[in-house]
Design a protein around this nucleic acid. Structure first.
Lengths: 147, 147
DNA sequence: AAATGATGATTGCTTTGACAACTATATCGG
DNA sequence: CCGATATAGTTGTCAAAGCAATCATCATTT
């Protein structure tokens, strides 16, 4: 069966390698652009750019992070002036986190890095193959998240 | 184009989710079996089980780890009695690392965890689809590692 | 309305892994 | 053979992320 034949070419190893490869490529591109940010911070900005105001919990879930890690990640981005924390209107426990002007400007640059990295990663696949890959990965992800 | 249409369904996010999903499932299965080991340690044992004696550098490269991280990882596994470090015969800088009896016994148990996790992950794909997925991922990986 | 339990955010603690500096040994150019 | 350089492994330091505990607030139940 397809699961465990070759010593180090199985699905688990491959997914890991691809993930790490994309990760390194992306962080390299960020550094090249003079941006001192990491992937997690990028994902938070992306989420805010696409979904507008969010709570810390929403952000944590979106990027699959611990709440404590999110607090500290937000500290850094707020400190650098890319986002602001405001009290939530209806829930006094929660925050309303949004991008500042600087954050929105930053997002444009980072988005370019993200798209460039992705383009490199899939440069050997045609459109149909890309769709196929995405479709297969979605099914695996859905299987996994349904435990 | 297929790269960046849906907000959070692109290849990068998916690879990340699948990798994390498989990772958590596997570590959960290890814990269930009463094994206090993590994925990296598993990968080292796997490498030793399949390739016999290895140097620390070979192991580090095999699991894509820093040399310093490898030293400490080996410390833990040696301390628990799963492997031994012996001086290399031809190169006095290097080590010959091999599994102990306990390490080989442990490997059998861990292998079962690994295969069970993998089986869950791909349970929604038929054999042809699994091969397709592996093939596409290999191409992406090869593209990435050729920079 | 009070009590109980759930949720949002923060903080302290720990583990993991990267990076850099260092030592010892090996290899290569002259 | 000798000096320069590269490689193997170890160690110190750091940042990122997970977990547990805490506090405040919300929701539910009676």
């Amino acid at each position: 069966m397809s699961i465990s034949q070759p010593p180090e070419e199985n699905l688990g190893v491959l997914v890991r390698q691809v993930r790490d490869g994309m990760f390194h490529l992306f962080e390299h591109k960020l550094a090249q652009s003079g941006l001192e940010l990491n992937l997690s911070q990028y994902l938070v900005l992306k989420r805010l750019a696409y979904h507008g105001v969010q709570t810390a919990t929403e952000l944590a879930r979106a990027i699959d992070h611990d709440a404590g890690a999110m607090t500290r990640l937000l500290d850094k981005l707020e400190e650098k002036g890319y986002l602001r924390r405001q009290p939530h209107q209806e829930d006094r426990r929660a925050l309303q986190i949004s991008l500042t002007e600087a954050g929105q400007a930053l997002w444009a640059t980072m988005q370019a890095c993200g798209e460039a990295s992705m383009a490199v990663a899939v440069s050997d696949l045609n459109d149909a193959e890309q769709d196929q890959l995405v479709s297969l990965l979605k099914r695996v992800r859905n299987t996994l998240e349904s435990k």
